[in-house]
Simulated assay, not measured.
Amino acid sequence: MVALMPKESHQFEKLSRDYRPLLLSLARKLSSRGSVEPEDLVQETLARALQEFDKLASASDAARRGWLCTTLTNRFFDLYRQRRAEQEQLPGLRLVQSEAVSPEEGLEEKWGEFSSEQFRAAVGRLKPKHREAYELHAQGLRYREIAQKLGVPTGTVGAWISEARRELRGLLTEADQGRRS
């Protein structure tokens, strides 16, 4: 968290008051279709402004205005792309969910046949990004937390974990068939 001196704190409050109407107007225009909450965009923009306040404090009014509007617009596009990616992943996630709810004939019994070592070996053979996302999820992190940790959109994390499960299913099925031969 950024700690401001009393004078800087007063300056930041003034900056927030002065630019909030402009930012809220821009956020409402960008969010007109309801995909992103305007108030959230403004709050996130002001939070970033607080982190960069040492630079913004000495900038001209035009430079501050440009930085704030650009930051808000970029954040909007980030959130829009993230939500679009999540929506695109929904059919695949529903498929994974339906497979988990109604497993294929005999698949449930097969999973119990693999030792922890075999499972860890299969996880070790996953593609690096898939493995990292899968392991973080297995540790109990939520998709959003994993996304922040890896610096990628939440939808990407969902896709990677889904692909990791698919790869694991293939690797373990392959191992099972190798055992039977």
Rank of each mutant, 00 (worst) to 15 (best):
P103S: 07
L93I: 06
T154F: 07
Q97G: 10
A63R: 13
A63Y: 09
A85F: 08
L150I: 00
R94N: 14
R83E: 04
Q177F: 11
V123D: 01
M5H: 10
L56W: 02
D78F: 03
P21T: 06
L126W: 01
R20W: 12
E113W: 03
V157C: 02
V42W: 02
R125E: 14
A164M: 01
R83D: 01
S32Q: 13
R120G: 03
I161H: 06
A3N: 09
E8G: 05
S116D: 13
R28Y: 04
A57Y: 07
C69V: 12
A57D: 05
R169S: 12
E174P: 08
L24F: 15
E132T: 15
T73Q: 01
R166I: 07
S9F: 11
W160V: 02
S25I: 10
R48P: 07
K29Y: 10
S58I: 14
K55D: 09
R165D: 08
N74Y: 04
Y80M: 10
D176M: 08
R17C: 04
S35V: 14
G106M: 03
L136P: 00
R81F: 05
G170L: 13
G140H: 05
E132C: 07
R84F: 07
R20P: 02
G170Q: 12
L30F: 00
V101S: 11
E105Y: 12
Q11T: 09
R64F: 02
R28D: 01
Q177I: 14
E117T: 11
S31W: 05
P6A: 05
A164K: 00
L30Q: 06
I146W: 05
Q148W: 04
I161N: 02
S9I: 05
Q43Y: 09
D40F: 13
I146L: 08
E52R: 15
L30E: 00
L22E: 09
P21S: 09
Q51P: 01
E99N: 10
E104S: 14
K149F: 01
L26N: 01
Q139A: 14
H130Q: 15
R84D: 01
A85E: 12
E113M: 12
F119G: 06
A27S: 06
R131M: 01
R28P: 03
R94M: 14
S60W: 06
R64T: 07
L26K: 13
P91M: 02
Y143L: 12
L30G: 01
D18L: 15
A164G: 03
A164T: 09
L68I: 05
A85Y: 03
W67C: 06
L72T: 00
A3M: 06
I146H: 01
L141E: 11
F119I: 10
L107C: 11
E135S: 14
G155N: 09
P153W: 00
T154A: 07
V157H: 01
A100F: 13
L46V: 03
H137L: 13
Q51S: 12
P21H: 04
